[in-house]
Design a protein around this nucleic acid. Structure first.
Length: 376
DNA sequence: AACGCGGGGTT
DNA sequence: AACCCAGCGTT
């Protein structure tokens, strides 16, 4: 049995010895094969890469063969893998390696880093796996694993966070098995410490994991709060009839359920606002309205998306509410609007419209669009 | 520091 | 429909 005092790098390696998948580039890890595999593995899943790797190294078995090939032939082998600049850089680097390094890959992290297509991740992977250099790889998996293990509260997307993790990890990279250590971290991230629903019960580092101990696994890794919220256009109508206006009730069990809103809905892709508002009102109330001028524009951000609400003044040529909509649509005197529960965006649109109607001859202005708000 | 690059799987 | 993936080069 492993003692609890066994350091985590050893536990990780023992786990790797028992659980490593056998992958083609692990069977015969020559520098060339490691290089090809790592180029293909950038932002690409292992299972996707395997067949491409086999075909590629069969077609171009050496750096010289790769350098001698036409770029078109290389791209053909890459077809379907995506990120085609990887193939172009690979081909270019092959030429440089032949011309300047005697057709052998550079053996150090620093030298590898100079080749086109090889960044910090790839340089560390090749240097450690093919040449045993003690440099840690910091990829998406490793960031996630250690963000949890050490409860790192920095945004994992930031360059600073990655550099800091590189420095912090380097002392742990074992002199004997640097490459296995790195592959073990990635393998753990890919198969156990997954983005969602991590398999903590099967994790060899569970007893060392700060986030697990704190029961805060789901809070890590900390992501940028600047993720762009999806944005929608919502078009609504101020439909007037004999001095009263039309409001509708949101379905219970939905967002804003039970609240009353100006009738309308989300604009379809490429649709005009005026078209959208008429369509949505017809769908929700059965009334055919004629959209007039825009009387209010409201920006609003919910927890998981943001909207631009555009309110059109509408006239109602047909009149009567069909029976099926009687319960969820109402004609209301403007002064009675306050008594109905309404979401903020609706409330703002209405008050904007009322202001413009009170003879305070303020021109309607469109607020500045906010494309990316921050999540709170 | 932010963005474009690609195709595919997961939730 | 987002998010994520064994990231890198450009701006």
């Amino acid at each position: 049995m492993p003692s609890r005092a066994e350091p985590w790098p050893r536990r990780l390696l023992r786990w790797y010895d028992r659980n490593a998948r056998h992958l083609p580039w692990r069977e015969n890890p020559t520098p060339y094969r490691v290089w090809i595999s790592e180029m293909m593995l950038q932002q690409t899943k292992v299972e996707t890469v395997v067949p491409y790797f086999r075909r590629f190294v069969r077609t171009f078995p050496s750096v010289r063969m790769l350098a001698a090939a036409n770029l078109a032939a290389v791209l053909k082998q890459w077809e379907g893998l995506g990120y085609y600049s990887r193939a172009r850089n690979l081909h270019m680097a092959a030429g440089i390696i032949c011309k300047e390094h005697g057709a052998r890959l550079p053996r150090t992290y620093d030298e590898l880093l100079k080749l086109p297509g090889i960044g910090p991740y790839c340089a560390a992977a090749i240097a450690s796996i093919a040449f045993g250099e003690r440099v840690p790889v910091v990829d998406g998996n490793v960031l996630r694993v250690f963000s949890r293990l050490w409860m790192i509260n920095e945004d994992v997307k930031k360059t600073r966070t990655r550099q800091a993790l590189f420095s912090r990890l380097q002392p742990y990279v074992p002199g004997r098995r640097a490459g296995d250590f790195n592959q073990a971290m990635m393998e753990l991230g890919a198969r156990v410490c997954t983005p969602r629903n991590p398999q903590c019960g099967r994790c060899p580092l569970r007893t060392t994991c700060a986030a697990h101990a704190a029961n805060r696994i789901a809070a890590y890794p900390v992501r940028s709060p600047t993720t762009r919220l999806p944005h929608r256009h919502v078009d609504v109508g101020v439909v007037r009839r004999n001095g009263r206006i039309l409001i509708t009730q949101r379905p219970v069990n939905r967002m804003l359920g039970g609240l009353w809103v100006l009738p309308g809905g989300p604009r379809a892709n490429g649709e005009r606002g005026s078209t959208s508002v008429a369509r949505c009102i017809r769908e929700k109330t059965g009334l055919d309205v004629r959209p007039g001028p825009i009387v209010a524009t409201v920006q609003h951000t919910y927890s998981h998306f943001s909207i631009t609400m555009t309110a059109f003044e509408c006239t109602d040529p047909t009149g009567c509410l069909p029976r099926k909509h009687k319960n969820s649509a109402k004609w209301v005197w403007p002064r009675a609007l306050d008594s109905y529960p309404m979401p903020t965006a609706t409330r703002r649109a209405i008050s904007r419209w009322l202001e413009d109607n009170d003879g305070t001859t303020r021109k309607h202005t469109v607020p500045k669009s906010s494309a990316n708000r921050r999540k709170s």
